[in-house]
């Protein structure tokens, strides 16, 4: 659905995006993951032709640079900074953007607003809305025309923990409904929960392109597994794990062990086979 080839964006001498190439299949959820300044937002702005860029981007075969307006007809966008016109109410904002998207004036947005818990606030001006409500409004606006592609820039950055979970749940529902999603985030738990593929960006370059379950492996990350055991089980556990050559040490109520990417389950399996019962564990 999306083809990006040799995308480069310079701001003066700085290369915010540096020769980036990737594609997104229809129905896929792809996350741009990386620290602040990695180039995630810039890529999203280029996808919508909001800023000039070098390289080629097509969406559903349409050249974004030449036919940006046509491409944006098929995209629902949730920006990182929720800057709507403050003097308009939710209802007026919905109507204004619906007209720009050529949605028929009789269209009833109540089910959409109900789903996003905004129905009772439609008469409120934007200036009176909380960050969470603005975020939900942004999603409502993105879904107005029921577009096949959603582009979300740090969609949960303005939300508290509880609202974040609810919002992620909403996005998961949309993903299961078949929407293609491209989003940026710097939260690992968010990208692993939502994405089918994670594109790790560093200084505008693509470092890793991986499914979430292989990310640790691709990055070569080691985890520290804290295993909570009965006092009598600590020594047998140490023996069993050392026998397999794992770096293990005692740790208060149990043991801690350094584990290679994708091997955490094997540690538990080894202890199980050695007859050691694990009460609990945490991963660091």
């Amino acid at each position: 659905m999306i083809e990006v080839a040799h995308l480069t964006k310079r701001f003066g001498r700085l290369r915010a995006v540096d020769d980036l190439s990737f594609n997104v299949e229809e129905g896929q959820a792809v996350a741009f993951w990386g620290a602040n300044g990695a180039g995630k937002t810039t890529v999203i702005r280029c996808l919508l032709n909001l800023i000039p860029y070098e390289g080629d981007i097509t969406v559903s075969g349409i050249d974004v640079r030449r036919n940006g307006k046509q491409v944006r007809q098929t995209v629902g966008f949730v920006p990182q900074e929720l800057n709507f016109h403050d003097d308009l109410t939710i209802a007026e904002t919905m109507t204004f953007y619906a007209r720009l998207k050529k949605i028929e004036t009789e269209h009833d947005f109540t089910p959409l607003l109900d789903r996003l818990d905004l129905s009772q606030h439609v008469a409120k001006p934007i200036s009176d809305l909380s960050g969470g409500m603005k975020q939900r409004l942004a999603l409502a606006l993105a879904l107005q025309a029921d577009p096949p592609l959603l582009v979300l820039d740090e969609p949960t950055v303005n939300l508290d923990i509880r609202s974040r979970d609810t919002f992620i749940q909403l996005l998961l529902e949309l993903k299961h409904a078949g929407k293609t999603m491209v989003f940026s985030s710097h939260r690992l738990e968010e990208v692993t929960a939502l994405a089918d593929r994670i594109l790790l960006l560093e200084a505008g370059k693509l470092v890793v392109d991986s499914p979430p379950d292989q990310l640790e492996q691709q990055l070569g990350w080691e985890s520290t597994l804290h295993l909570y055991l009965a006092r009598t089980a600590i020594q047998p556990a140490l023996d069993a794990l050392q026998q397999h050559g794992l770096p293990v040490a005692m740790n208060g109520r149990g043991v801690r062990v350094q584990v290679a990417p994708g091997k955490k389950g094997q540690v538990l399996q080894m202890l199980c086979e050695a007859g050691v019962q694990v009460d609990d564990f945490t991963v660091e």
């Binding site: 307006k69 709507f84 953007y97 720009l100």
Partner: peptide
């Protein structure tokens, strides 16, 4: 400066 231009231009308008 207010940031509203970015969102406006993300709509299907030229």
């Amino acid at each position: 400066e207010k940031g509203t231009l970015m969102y406006l231009m993300a709509q299907p308008i030229s």
